[in-house]
Amino acid sequence: MSWLKSAMRAAKKGEGHVAFVALFTLAPLLAFISLLIYTFSTASRGASAFASGVFISMASAATGSLFGFLFGIPRSRQRGEKEGFEKEEDREETSGNFGPNTNLEQISDWLTKILVGVGLVQIGNGTDAARRLVKSAGEAMGGTASARPVSASIIVTFVAWGFMVSYILTYTRGPRAFHSAYVMAVKKFKNQSELDAHTIEAAARVLDPPHGGRVVQQEEINSWAIQATSETRIWIFRVSKQQLDDALRDPTNNGDSISRTTPIFRALTAADAEYPPYVGYLGIALAMQSDPHFWDAEASLSEAIRLRRKREDAGWLEYEFYRVLCRIELKRNVDAIIQDLVSIQ
């Protein structure tokens, strides 16, 4: 088995090895050539027998690959566990601690033990099942006297080939693949967490700007909101909505506090223009800020009402109320104003 160890070591380094070339290419190639010669020289239905042999080969290889994958799934090293390599070069070839135990790893461990145990106990009962399988495969390959041993050879060959290829690839490439996937996931999570933190920080500076601090531009907060997760945007919306609602209930408020929520609702709308509360509260903020923009407010509220109806949501009737205020200020048609008042009731 020294060739297998050296081949695995070469595979971990990404180097070519004649054993792998032979195993991956020559073995199935020779098997298919032999199958082609057999089917078109002895079988009465050459094309049909060859197609059946190909499908049997594919099914056998898939079965062997599944078992090879289950047996070859790498086990993550726990903290404080010794790696147990005999040589330092073997230690250097490993991919490190790619993460904690996974469910797939545990399931693989359970399944391999179950399969080995059941296989040893039921090995005698499997003879009849194997005989029926070979008989069915032989009939599909022409039903001749030599079809059964040929079909049995195909099944054994490709099950073994699929197992070896899958096991070696999983054993040699698995740790590195698992480690890379784990690192990428951690980096993505870390980067997204940083983006969300920056978005919350920018929103806080807009809602409650520090004295003498840098003014956050609308394009900047838009960019942060677009990159943030939906959960972060919802949290920022609730904080901004609370500030707006508190300002509306405060009779001494001059609209400045509401004006500071307008950029936030603009950014949220830029990030998700299909969510009615974002669009609707942008309209409310535009209508009630210190420098009202009733035209834009009416447009935003009308869009929010359309989105609400599209989602078949019966709530958020304050949209119509504030649209009435906008239409009164803009001296709109009385019928349109009455229609909104009726819908509020």
Rank of each mutant, 00 (worst) to 15 (best):
S166I: 09
K188M: 05
S6R: 13
R131P: 00
A314S: 08
L244A: 05
E194W: 02
M141N: 07
T261N: 04
R9T: 14
R266I: 10
R148C: 01
G46R: 09
T94M: 05
A51P: 04
D90M: 01
S151M: 14
D340H: 09
A19N: 11
R311L: 06
T199W: 07
L30F: 05
K190T: 07
L36V: 13
W316V: 03
R77S: 07
H198R: 15
V342E: 12
D335Q: 14
A147E: 06
A336E: 15
I236N: 01
A185W: 07
K310L: 09
V183P: 01
S240P: 08
A61V: 08
P100H: 09
E318C: 03
G80W: 07
G174C: 00
R79L: 13
A22F: 11
R173S: 02
A287D: 07
G142N: 14
G315V: 02
G280R: 10
S153F: 15
L268T: 06
Y182C: 00
E201Q: 12
Q217Y: 05
G143H: 06
Q106N: 07
E201S: 11
R132Y: 11
R91F: 11
L66P: 00
S65M: 12
V159K: 08
S52G: 12
V121T: 08
A197R: 13
P209C: 00
S108P: 01
A22N: 11
V18C: 02
L301M: 01
I37W: 14
D208K: 15
M141P: 04
I37F: 14
D272V: 04
D246R: 15
R131Y: 02
F189D: 13
